[in-house]
Design a binder for these strands. Sequence first.
DNA 1: GTGAAAGCGCTAACAT
DNA 2: ATGTTAGCGCTTTCAC
Lengths: 340, 340
Amino acid sequence: MRTRKKPTVVDVASRAGVAVGTVSRVINHSEAVSPHTRDAVWRAIAELGFRPNNVARSMRTRVTHTIGFVIPDISNPLFSVIARAAEDTLQNVGYLLNIANSGESLEREVKLIRAFAERQCDGLMFVTNNESDMRMLEALTSSRLPLVALDREIDLPIDKVMTDHARGLRLAVKYLLELGHRRIALINASDRIAPGRERMRGFKEAHSELGLKVDAALIRSGRLDQDFGATQMGALLDLKRPPTAIIAGGNQILVGVLRALQLRDLTVPRDLSLIGCDDTAVTQVFSPPITVVDRDLVQIGRTAAQILIDRLSGQGRGLQPSRALLPTELKIRGSCAPRR
Amino acid sequence: MRTRKKPTVVDVASRAGVAVGTVSRVINHSEAVSPHTRDAVWRAIAELGFRPNNVARSMRTRVTHTIGFVIPDISNPLFSVIARAAEDTLQNVGYLLNIANSGESLEREVKLIRAFAERQCDGLMFVTNNESDMRMLEALTSSRLPLVALDREIDLPIDKVMTDHARGLRLAVKYLLELGHRRIALINASDRIAPGRERMRGFKEAHSELGLKVDAALIRSGRLDQDFGATQMGALLDLKRPPTAIIAGGNQILVGVLRALQLRDLTVPRDLSLIGCDDTAVTQVFSPPITVVDRDLVQIGRTAAQILIDRLSGQGRGLQPSRALLPTELKIRGSCAPRR
DNA sequence: GTGAAAGCGCTAACAT
DNA sequence: ATGTTAGCGCTTTCAC
């Protein structure tokens, strides 16, 4: 079988004995076509094996039915679950999701935003690690794309899907406080991104509401990766007065913490109480199952996607930028014990 | 700031006082442009805020620099790690990855392959759950796209990146046999996909090499999800003669197994020896760390992406379909004990 | 209800 | 070295 040139609307039209415009009307299911010609066109399409070229179509219609998604790392379960939910939502209405990893690099984030804009995608969802960098804001603005920020406090009039991390942390700290813990450590993201700031805020508020001071040595803000979690956990254990409870402000930080504890043969909750953020396979099958500050990741992805769909469908064309604040809850399991 | 129409090459050309062809030469960095006009064009581009429209460009050049990736579920760490590696590799050479989840449905797989073909993506990587379904083969063939199958034995002359699951399973079984186990169970994927068949083959070969029979009741082939793992684990434990060791043929199956054991308060390796397939956060931080049949997922993603890059760059244009067989190894950790 | 024709924004072949 | 022009495959007026 020879790879002959792909048939186009012109080929279909001549085969069906109609004009190209008519072919277009048929494949776009517009009403104004007689049943007879419609059948003739479909027959020609089938005989030729014609498949519309969506690039050409996009060129005319100026819609690509493609959404870009810039994230730090799809292999982080946090993002892969959100991406799955977003993609499902989009796929259901005929959109495709273009996922790109930034590795948290500003340079790559900016490059990717530009790439998505040049490719004329219809909208962009993103999780930046450079929330308030001018180059980031500039790239975002000049893209002229409908934008949805996920869990990042971008100073731009765009749609945002935020999480109430502060509340979750307040609940977590109060719970530990009630168990008698007074030296609670927080290993956290940088305060240059919203989740870091919000978790910190909740952490401090819970303490101050009860008139308690927090020892600055117990707060470790920095990055979200496993290595940071492991390193900081180690450093905390080496303190003259180590904490009796740990809150890991991120699922990767938690894995790092768990590694560090494993290395030192420490057992949860016997030696240390532990609370994680975000409910993953790890927190669920760990023994004992880990108490977590949870949120509905599927809802986050779905919400972000739906916002874009609404904007693009004209439902939400001129509307003010929205701001969803999704809840967190404390899922109490077996990783915390009363202070001895 | 008004959203005036986006500037095109025509606008740039007239502003710079040159022809559109010259603008095209400049933005494509072709040599034949004098430094003077080049500068003038770049200036005009900057002043206008011109950004090339890649849809129009693709229409002419017939390349989109986009690769499609059809997978069952990006939230499965197996696929998200592969996707991350593939995307990194592609991004480095200017490609974007379009990830779509099939949810293992044939209908969605076929629809997505068509969608990618219509959108003129330059190549397609895929993990199908319907390896030998005629409709799948038809969709693949008629897409006329450069194809790379990941870990699936498609009966088509296309590039494949396979894994030597059989060897990994042989090693796992032998290890358990050496520990004295004689009732080893395998909870496995369907034999309708290559990993299922290959794992089964390795499992049986290891037994027969030592002249041992396998009890059919200990082999559970079906699906790759957590529920299947949990259900089958439960059923195995309810056997009159339950197994003393379990091999979970997939990372999600393993999570299901762990859940089932948790439910019955069974401890590994005291009550049961356990081996997983694929090394994830779960197998690493579980206590004890779980012995696994491991493989390099990053290499799988990278290899698949590189194959496509080579084909598209002309390096591997007319070459025969390739078939990579990546190795597996047994990582012995703490989840197996001698039979009591 | 259908045909004819004008582009969408860009690249590439052909002139000059 | 640069200008001119013909499309790429499709949708969408505008006639008829």
